[in-house]
């Protein structure tokens, strides 16, 4: 009993300690962002690698999610003779929720895990120590460019997801099921609000990019520098980042759409 209690206490303290380290890490990361002004090439290279890693999977998933959504929505809407609203419902669902959230989850699984593995391996092979000993700050040269790249890439990817999703919905709804094409687009145009829908979706995806990148880079930095440690950190990144995306989505939605 006492042992259990002790174990619980130890786990709790360990957790809090890690949380603390994570925040100190974030603070140093943010401070290092300033140095990127002189090295924009580093960020651009990372945006390219993060984007390429994730673009294909985003496009394919966006297309299928849009198509499935159109099928499901059509069946429901047709019961109310409201199938013309397919376009607007589809667009709102994608822009407000599915775009940022699914992109965030895919991003955590694809780019996040790759970031953790890359940085963990750099730690395990002493590359980070090597940089330190060459008087090069890994925060400025390794962590900050990847962080910024993820924050920039996420909204772009989410926008891509939503756009492809709408296209997929159009294909199924209009071309396949025969919804009127004019109604599909015009209802969408008049009912999607720039601030309320578009910007909120962008804010969400920026926040998700920030959190996923933070978790992924920190897990890599904080891993046990062995091959087993790296693989465990990679798994933790995917789990924690996905949970963070879903939890934050609820929080942000409550704040944004409940006023």
């Amino acid at each position: 009993m006492l042992d259990r209690l002790q174990g619980l206490g130890k786990t709790g303290i360990g957790f809090l300690e890690r949380l603390g380290r994570g925040h100190i890490f974030l603070a140093r990361l943010l401070l290092a962002l300033g140095s990127l002004v002189f090295k924009p090439g580093l960020v651009i290279r990372q945006i390219y690698s993060v984007g390429v890693l994730t673009l294909i999977i985003i496009i394919v998933s966006g297309l299928f999610v849009g198509m499935v959504l159109a099928l499901q929505l059509y069946n429901t809407l047709v019961g109310f003779n409201a199938e013309e609203s397919l376009g607007v419902v589809l667009a709102l669902t994608l822009l407000r929720e599915l775009g940022p959230v699914v992109t965030g989850l895919l991003f955590a699984g694809r780019a996040g895990s790759a970031l953790t593995a890359e940085i963990g391996l750099m730690k395990a092979t002493e590359q980070l120590s090597g940089l330190e000993m060459m008087a090069v700050d890994p925060y400025q040269r390794i962590f900050a460019p990847r962080f910024l790249a993820a924050v920039v890439a996420m909204p772009l990817l989410a926008a891509m997801f939503s756009a492809v999703g709408v296209l997929g919905g159009y294909l199924v709804g209009v071309e396949l099921l025969g919804v009127d094409s004019g109604a599909f687009w015009s209802q969408m145009q008049s009912n999607v609000d720039f601030n309320m829908d578009l910007m909120n979706g962008v804010i969400k995806s920026v926040v998700f990019g920030l959190v996923v990148a933070w978790i992924a880079i920190f897990e890599g930095f904080d891993c046990i520098p062995t091959s087993e440690g790296v693989s465990r950190a990679t798994t933790r990144t995917v789990v924690n980042a996905s949970l963070a995306v879903l939890g934050l989505d609820f929080l942000l939605t409550a704040l944004m759409f409940n006023a």
Partner: peptide, 28 residues
């Protein structure tokens, strides 16, 4: 960091940057 520029260190594993060529590593 100023002092570290005056220290070189050769790691047991080499610690070369894996995404750079040998030339770029030495030039780094």
């Amino acid at each position: 960091y100023t002092e570290r520029k005056r220290m070189g260190m050769l790691f047991q594993s080499g610690a070369l940057l894996t995404d750079l060529s040998v030339f770029e590593n030495v030039a780094y």
